[in-house]
């Protein structure tokens, strides 16, 4: 009973002081919601739904585009984190307006641009994509000839792991990308086994550790990628790509093609031809630009918005060229 009274007394005191504090605060309550409307820009941009595919280079493109669209055009930008295929589906349903870095994907182009007619291309991003086999720089320095596929069998022992048995391990498998590696290994008669890392994270971790600890690793990777800002991975030369050499997946014995990374937008979005579409269409920069912004995000852990701001502030002239003529 006494305990109850005590508790009760304490509670009352707490409540009273809380009420007092509340009343005091309501007198000088600070900024009210709606008073400090900071919606910058003008124009009639409306909503701009941009897909975010799961790699940092993409995010760099998207961050800069979103930042410019918001600040310069007054768009309401919605970012949607989606895998590529899913993002392309979104063109048809109206959930996605733009994919701002596309790696080839001829199958998707055929399906969504030619057949379903829900998407259209919006031109190159100016960034050149490369897919291939890479080794960490220390390894290339120590064994300069390792970067030619003809010598790979010589070094197969170096790359043995618990997963590859008595063959060399070729670490593969960002599951988002098509890989020809099993065919390549077979058709080039390489004494290697493809091991599926299963995620970009696994690949990056492997390369990073290999460089740090000077351990050997060879694996599938691609550029541009923010990791290149940290480690200059060295590409292994495969038999050069010629048009059509990858026609039959079973018989591929050549390198991956270079990709002119482009932008894909929803057909409706393009037809409306609003300022956001103009911006996407005009958007072009370089591998270095992208790597820089990607580095801000991945290495320096800036928010995409802050990274974009930093780059935009430093490259006002480039940005100016992207803006629609009327604004």
């Amino acid at each position: 009973m006494t305990r109850d009274k005590w508790v009760r007394a304490v509670r009352q005191k707490v409540w009273i002081s809380a009420v007092a504090a509340a009343l005091a605060l309501s007198g000088c309550g600070g900024a009210k919601i709606g008073e400090t409307s900071s919606q910058g820009g003008s124009g009639n941009c409306g909503e701009f739904k941009i897909a975010i595919n799961p790699w940092v280079g993409y995010e760099a493109n998207a961050a800069v585009l979103a930042y410019v669209a918001e600040k310069e055009l007054g768009c309401k930008v919605t970012k949607k984190d989606l895998k590529e295929e899913v993002a392309w589906q979104g063109f048809g349903t109206g959930e996605v307006d733009a994919v701002v870095e596309n790696w080839g994907h001829d199958d998707l182009k055929k399906k969504y641009i030619d057949e379903q007619k829900t998407a259209v291309s919006a031109g190159s991003t100016g960034v050149q994509g490369q897919i291939g086999w890479y080794v960490p720089p220390w390894l290339a320095k120590e064994h300069p000839d390792i970067t030619d596929w003809n010598n790979l069998n010589k070094y197969a022992d170096l790359f043995k792991t618990s997963e590859s048995g008595d063959k060399g391990q070729l670490l593969d498998g960002d599951p988002s990308f098509v890989t020809n590696d099993e065919s390549l290994v077979k058709n080039l008669n390489l004494n290697y086994k493809v091991v599926y890392g299963g995620s970009e994270t696994a690949l990056i971790q492997a390369f990073r550790q290999a460089e740090q600890n000077k351990t050997p690793v060879i694996g599938y990777f691609y550029s541009p990628q923010w990791l290149f800002a940290e480690i200059e991975l060295v590409k292994v030369k495969l038999p050069p790509y010629t048009a059509g050499c990858d026609a039959d997946p079973e018989k591929i014995a050549c390198d991956y093609p270079d990709y002119d990374l482009d932008k894909i937008v929803a057909k409706k979005f393009a037809d409306a031809n609003g300022p956001a579409f103009q911006l996407v269409k005009n958007f072009q920069w370089t591998n270095d630009d992208q790597n820089l912004v990607a580095k801000y995000i991945a290495e320096e852990k800036m928010s995409p918005d802050a990274a974009a701001k930093k780059w935009v502030d430093a490259n006002a002239d480039k940005v100016k060229a992207w803006l629609p003529a009327t604004s």
Binding site: P54, W55, R208, A298
Partner: peptide, 8 residues
């Protein structure tokens, strides 16, 4: 999931 893309 996003943090893991950059091994953060």
């Amino acid at each position: 999931v996003k943090a893991l893309q950059t091994l953060d």
